[in-house]
Write a protein that binds this DNA or RNA. Structure first.
Lengths: 200, 200, 200, 200
DNA sequence: TCCTAACCGAGACGGTACGTCACGTCTTCAG
DNA sequence: CTGAAGACGTGACGTACCGTCTCGGTTAGGA
């Protein structure tokens, strides 16, 4: 997102991204303005327009900055050997985070920016969601190799089948987002909709 | 959403909703303004502000008007007895619609408004999504009664597990939205992630 | 300058023009901004842009408003029968006014706007300067009819020859602007540059 | 205006002044910016700010550079012995120049800067206008000594009475600026406003 | 002949103002 | 007496320049 790293003031960059994220959780997405970010960051508007093409791009970079701390080692899901337990734990944490008022507003902002801006969506897929999704696939692959998942399982679809309902319910507010709901997703996804064979 | 139907001119109402929907697909969500809708509809701004509390409400009502034709008989999914075939057919149609440029932008607009406005989300859940979701549940219930689905299956979760990945991929643009992808969702959801027992 | 007098709020108009004139004498022409005028007048910027095409037009109208009080009876120069005394008195008053710090800055602003905007210059010539110049011509014409001025005198040139040097010295600061200087202009203009005939 | 000639690049100085003058006649005074001058001159902004205190000073120096060619010998008005003819010729040339689109805009810019900046006005009076005005006075003085002008004539006032109306009409656009108008000024100024004595 | 200070181009920076758009409220006037 | 038309105060937009401030890279001139 950030263009040529020419003679750019790092302190301003951080101030802008921090201000953007803070404003997001304070006043909500719709009321965040470039002007407001600039004022809060103690920065000229032009400094924002010089380096970011849109409000969405600033917000995106703000998220990127937050996740920069964990750089170096790629993220990984816990792997105790018990897939169901591991998935449940991870989904519980996700539910927790999505319900946290500090993150709810900013993440909705990011989600809707992505929904309206294909370029941003691509950057998201590559820089933010990519590593995470790979970690999810990796956990399933590990279970697959241990014989706990079908050999011919489509890992991409499997990942989306577990996390998709969760994200959907959160974003569309189509129902309460609870740990219990997460549990039902995991068990239902693992067993499938079909009746269990006898002897299982 | 629509308040008391007092002394209200129906022709203006329809003109406003039509203008809103058309503008949505023409210029995109971000560039639709109340002022623009009023101008396009040949209506004073006050006439909009009098009857709708927000831009989102107008958009919502525009969708409501579109689905008004089918009122009377509640919607139902096809039921040939072959669940997999029926689901596949329905999902294919959904993929088609989501990829249709006439509906893509407006539906993104609706999704965004819902994501940021709890009240609108409730109205959506009740008036627009509710009947549809019931139809989906009903189709699964029918299969369940025929013994094709697990007896203790959580129908709500099942519905979200089938449609969630699709909507998510569309809204977040996390991958190509194809009929083939719909197929993979259906088979994966039906079988579950676990290895199949021998003899199946 | 003011376009169609449609449904326009007179109170805002007066507030704008008053604010413009006051700012002019307070902070000087260069530092007067539309934004500043709007803020001081308690008015939206758009209300200024709606009715005036440029900053100069606002300033011009501010002057017009000031001179509106004297409307009705056209201005006239004193006519005691003694031309030299009358001219001297009028020029002294003009010198006084040009040296008054309350009017110096605003009038410089008007003068330079006119210098750069032909349309404004035309409006000035017609609405503000026109009546005044006619009064000057009239006083000379009266003297002419009394036989105190040459029969074939070009009144236009005569007027500019008396007031031109004064305005020039003021605007270009080419020398001190004093009553004594005004006196010298009057006597020199009346006698001309040529040597006086004997017997005069 | 130009500070200590320390280690200063002459080529940049000339490029800046040339760019300033050219821009002045091309885009008009109001649209000339330091940034624009720097860009056109291929020079850093700081190089302008280092050597000139204001935009007006640059413009002033640009005029100074133009008149540098004639340095050495002070300017002089033609002196054929026929004052009226000489004045008419000079005023015709001035009218020509003021009507020349190449000089009109830049000279208005200079006049405006002078009107708003006392310091600049002083520099103008001394460096640019001074020698010229002295030449005008000198021509009148010569006529005076030849007995063609009044012995006690105030030469300063006389000069301003001839050139003042011309400059005024140009700057304020209070009427067409023609050779014929110049003629009328000369004859009126020479004869004065009073009736001619018989026998003249 | 090298060192070092100043000047130079370039352009990022915190700002101010520009002129425009849309907001949501209000007032007017024609049907 | 409704409702279109649109003026109003407000506030954000994205742009242009302001004057200051580094950056490297010349470019002299004193050692």
């Amino acid at each position: 997102m950030t263009p040529s790293p020419a003679r750019r003031r790092e302190s301003s960059r951080r101030a802008i991204l921090t201000a953007a994220f803070d404003l997001l959780s304070e006043v909500g997405y719709a009321k965040v303005s470039i002007e407001g970010i600039a004022a809060r960051a103690g920065v000229g508007k032009q400094t924002i327009y010089r380096w970011w093409p849109s409000k969405g791009a600033v917000i995106f970079d703000a998220f990127l900055m937050l996740s920069e701390g964990n750089e170096g080692e790629p993220p990984a899901l816990p792997d105790t050997g018990d897939l169901e337990a591991d998935l449940t734990a991870v989904l519980h944490a996700t539910v927790e985070e999505l319900n946290d008022p500090r993150y709810d507003q900013p993440m909705r902002a990011l989600a809707t920016e992505i929904a309206h801006d294909a370029e941003l969506a691509a950057a998201y897929a590559e820089r933010l969601d990519g590593p995470l999704k790979e970690a999810k696939r990796q956990r399933l692959r590990s279970a697959q190799q241990a014989g706990h998942l079908a050999e011919d399982l489509d890992l991409d679809v499997a990942v989306e089948m577990i996390w998709g309902p969760l994200l959907n319910r959160w974003l569309q507010r189509s129902g309460p987002l609870t740990a219990e709901y997460a549990d039902r997703i995991v068990t239902t996804a693992l067993h499938g909709l079909r009746p269990r064979r006898s002897g299982e």
